[in-house]
């Protein structure tokens, strides 16, 4: 599904990813854990195609196709979705307008019929209900005045609406209360089962109790330094990063 080979990326001349490899199969859930500043969000931005990051080497393929030359919108249409660590506020742009434009842009690019107002609202209302998002929130400007938890739930709502095949969740669990964490995890789990793959970036084992990963990676200083099964997350929770990062250094 998603393959990252020897990826190197820098910003403002500072190298942040230095030779990162990752291979995520169809239907799999991989988790990435790692200390602050390891480059986890940088990886997610580079995957999504943020232009400020300069990719200096390596390749990323989605279903065998390189996405390196694709714009962010082309990547989204190809099925890549990034749930932001810090969702962006967009004053003056209503959630419903934003969502409808996004859904129909993606559908159009995928050769599907665009949804009319009625079908769109039906889809949106259904997903909102599953994720415990009020209609009122959809009338507000994108993320403006949303609480931390609401922003994260809104990311998962957008993910569900856009029907991606590969999703990156960048600390979608941080800032969520226990109930919201369950709602978000249920939202992700509802999308599992088929071919969809997930890359879950988190600091906490807790999320992985709800979203069971197939593989856990530890990232430090811009590369993957250890890979294991779900037990690796438990080990990290108990011992912290010091041993692993130290051993790799």
């Amino acid at each position: 599904m998603l393959n990252i080979k020897n990826l190197k990326a820098s910003i403002d001349g500072k190298e942040i990813l230095n030779g990162l490899n990752l291979d995520i199969g169809a239907g799999q859930v991989h988790a990435i854990m790692g200390p602050n500043g390891a480059g986890k969000s940088t990886l997610s931005y580079v995957l999504a195609g943020r232009e400020e990051y300069e990719v200096t080497g390596g390749d990323i393929t989605l279903d065998g196709q390189s996405i390196m030359d694709m714009s962010p919108e082309e990547r989204a249409a190809a099925g890549l979705f990034l749930a932001f660590q810090y969702p962006v506020e967009i004053p003056g742009v209503q959630m419903t307008t934003f969502m409808k434009t996004a859904v129909n842009s993606v559908r159009k690019a995928r050769g599907l019929k665009e949804l009319d107002a009625i079908d769109f609202l039906k889809l949106m209302k259904g997903k909102c209900k599953e994720l415990g998002i009020s209609d009122d929130m959809m009338k507000r400007a994108v993320n403006v005045g949303f609480s931390g938890g609401e922003k994260k739930r809104n990311e998962v709502l957008q993910m569900a609406m856009l029907d991606p095949k590969f999703c990156v969740l960048d600390e979608t669990d941080s800032g969520l209360d226990i109930d919201a964490l369950k709602i978000v995890a249920d939202g992700v789990n509802a999308m599992r089962g088929g071919d969809k793959s997930f890359l879950v970036i988190t600091h906490y084992q807790r999320l992985l109790d709800y979203i069971k990963p197939d593989v856990v990676h530890v990232m430090s200083k811009g590369r993957i330094i250890k890979t294991g099964g779900p037990e690796l997350a438990l080990e990290l929770e108990a011992k912290g990063y010091a041993d692993i990062v130290g051993a790799a250094a």
């Binding site: 919108e73 990547r75 962006v88 003056g92 934003f98 996004a102």
Partner: peptide
């Protein structure tokens, strides 16, 4: 840049994203 990238990451083509932001 941030809202622009956010919208594009959701599949909204750049000119459409710009137009929405300018209308706002």
């Amino acid at each position: 840049d941030d809202p622009l990238f956010y919208m594009r990451a959701r599949g909204i083509p750049e000119p459409v994203a710009r137009a929405l932001l300018i209308e706002a």
